[in-house]
Design a protein around this nucleic acid. Sequence first.
DNA 1: TAGGTTTGTTTCAAACTTGAACCAAGCGGA
DNA 2: TCCGCTTGGTTCAAGTTTGAAACAAACCTA
Lengths: 171, 171
Amino acid sequence: MTTRWLTPEEQRAWRAYIASAALVEDALDRQLQQEAGMPHLYYSILATLSEAPERRLRMTDLAEGLKITRSRLTYAVTRLEKDGLVRREDCRWDKRGSIATLTDEGMRVLERTAPGHVETVRALLFDRLTPEQVGQLEEIFTAVAGGFQGDDAHATAEDVPWRRRSGKPCS
Amino acid sequence: MTTRWLTPEEQRAWRAYIASAALVEDALDRQLQQEAGMPHLYYSILATLSEAPERRLRMTDLAEGLKITRSRLTYAVTRLEKDGLVRREDCRWDKRGSIATLTDEGMRVLERTAPGHVETVRALLFDRLTPEQVGQLEEIFTAVAGGFQGDDAHATAEDVPWRRRSGKPCS
DNA sequence: TAGGTTTGTTTCAAACTTGAACCAAGCGGA
DNA sequence: TCCGCTTGGTTCAAGTTTGAAACAAACCTA
């Protein structure tokens, strides 16, 4: 079957999106590197942990919630652990398991840097959009995220990133 | 001034966006790594060159068009040059300058892999959106990109990535 | 309950990115 | 013309990401 190239409109949308997505991520990385001494992903790890019950999560759940590979997470957590922001504990119910816990220090860093992060997100994105566009943005990317469901049978998107592996308790 | 946290709606939009953006980039990288043996950025370099007059661009123009650092580009072009897809030439008018040119081989790789890339873009994004949403997507990210104008006074987004540095000819 | 498969996590080397430092070559004015 | 400032590019070390092993524990199933 012959290629269905992008229409001019799709072309424009795609280029605007790709360029902006990269710019936003870069800006976020730089801002957080400045204020928190870590890239965006690492901040997200702390943030995700902070919302989890008891501020702890199994590595695999954390990786799935953040949609990153386990090996990437291993590296990141090792660094955060060195910095004292996260602690690794063994899972008592599953001896293979490893649990990442946000330390008090980690919580403090998060609380200290969150306002600046939110400001940046506003400056980069929401301040530039109308309220309708915010709604559209959500719908568009909820639809896009839907395309990845099959990949590894997750819960939808970010709603319950701390969902447990099986029904098994864990800590 | 006290932090303006994200509203629940903004929160949802932000999370859907962040997660999807990462997923899309990853999927793109994987697809292109498979089919073309290079990550998305490297493919974009070839694509940008292919649209430039004479398929050549000064390093800095290329970096600005792609919105990446010069050093990142240097590394990437070095690799692409090793693979024979791009060639470096000296700029005759400005002895500091270096010009990246797409080779015939590079053009062939691009032509061979473009259809698959477009398919992927459709599968990841456009197939999941209504025509109205495509328009909304463009408007949203054109607005977002607008926020970066001051950073280095570019032409808007991707429209003229091959624009010349000064008025000076170059090759 | 032994043996094979799956699951959770880490390890390792190779590739890539970052930011600061560096080196030329242009440029502008005293 | 000489000098200091800017611009175009590369280099280098440190940090990060990738994907393919490697491992170990848990889970079948015959």
